[in-house]
Design a protein around this nucleic acid. Sequence first.
RNA 1: GGUGGGGUGGCAGAGUGGCUGAAUGCGGCGGUCUUGAAAACCGCUGUCGGCGGAAGCCGACCGGGGGUUCGAAUCCCCCCCCCACCGCCA
Length: 428
Amino acid sequence: MLDIKVLRDDPEAARQAARKKRMPDRANAVDRALQLDAELRVLTPKLDGMRADQKAGSKEIGKMAPADREAFLGGQKAKKEELKHFEEREKQLKAEIEQALALVPNIPDSEVPDGKDDTENVEVKKHGMVRQFPFAAKAHYEIGEAQGWLDFTRAAELSGSRNYVLFSDLALLQDAVLRFSIDLMVERGFVPVDPPVMVRDPAMFGTGFFPGGEEQTYRCEKDGLNLIGTSEVPVTSLHAGEILSEADLPKKYVARSMCFRREAGTYGKDTRGLYRVHQFQKVEQVVLDIADKARSLEHHAAIVQNAESCLQAFELPYRIVAVCGGDLGVPQAFKYDIETWMPSRNAYGETHSASRFYDYQARRLGLRYRDALGKVRFCHTLNNTVIASPRVLIPLLENHQNPDGTVNVPAALRPYMGGRAVIGKKVF
RNA sequence: GGUGGGGUGGCAGAGUGGCUGAAUGCGGCGGUCUUGAAAACCGCUGUCGGCGGAAGCCGACCGGGGGUUCGAAUCCCCCCCCCACCGCCA
């Protein structure tokens, strides 16, 4: 949520923001919010005056002799009656402003590239050499199925499309990857968190997924709970409604959780293999800190670096792209995606997403802190993937495959794989 | 699912119709004392909005919504949430 003052001061910036994000309907919300706000700002002083007057009368009456009360009472009642409809309008306006404001997207930073979708993201860094295979490289699902590590048929039978079952060494490899990532983050000072994967609506709203993301979310209607699509939701919301002490900041969390996504509207897209699935596990990093842009930028660089460390440890080629306006979500001010090389796609595929929000989420969450001067302010929030599986298994299997279908285990992961340097048997 | 107890300021916890935006304690800030620190003592210390250069003044807010009343944290109704015990299950 943006501060209404930001809209008043520079409404064009907010409209422009929505357009840059290719959300024209949300640009309209700016004007709706402002229009309602203008009415409220006329109404408020008037209402306050009336209330002050009525309140003063009530105080008088308490001190009066009973005989004098009668005459006064009539006047008081009339004032009360008059107040009533103005108060109703006030309540209505406040609710509607809130509603409109919730639709206004965060303003993208000026360095966000212009563009309509992910094809217009801008590469800013490339790391590692793409491997040239002297043999016919297989896709991860070919290797996985041949090794008995992967079963999409039974998964579909059990749970429908976009599901999978991992077996044996691939199940272990997934765990190795996740555990390595957590250990790396703990070493870097992040506090490990095992959060709930079902959350109430305010957490979805506060992090900016609602309104708008309802179609992507599995919901337990009976209980009014939502399955999270990322632990960003519960972890960023951990301190919602609190006023933290500046001494407690920054809060740096690393969470591991199951994630659930309906993937509505993606029919026919990435249907093979492990790329786009309904449930997966993710290690996520979340940072909460004081409202200072420079600090946010530092954290952002650091959380990107953390993800890079993982990919480097896994010996995977990747690149970093600055996400363009049209591919940015509602709450983000800036986002880097990290894409890892996936031979079966003959392309880099998104594996990480590092966002900064400034105070947009914090404002919606009521996430605040008291600064050195005693002033209460909204925090800044950021997050990035550390590793998400099974998607990361795609590059791991494909980049490290041998002609016979066995797969090399990167040195960093061997301690988590019983010391083995190779997994699988000769299958090709 | 059943029964009972609760939701008040950064935290803990008083407060059952006007003198309460809210006692008290803790914490925080400032000061006295000290070579320095601690302790002790003194003072200040809720959030949001409006007007104002400021001091300040006004308004809203005691889980949420509605109601009674000239006046509600306090009374009534509905909802949400938390806790305890029992039952059931893992």
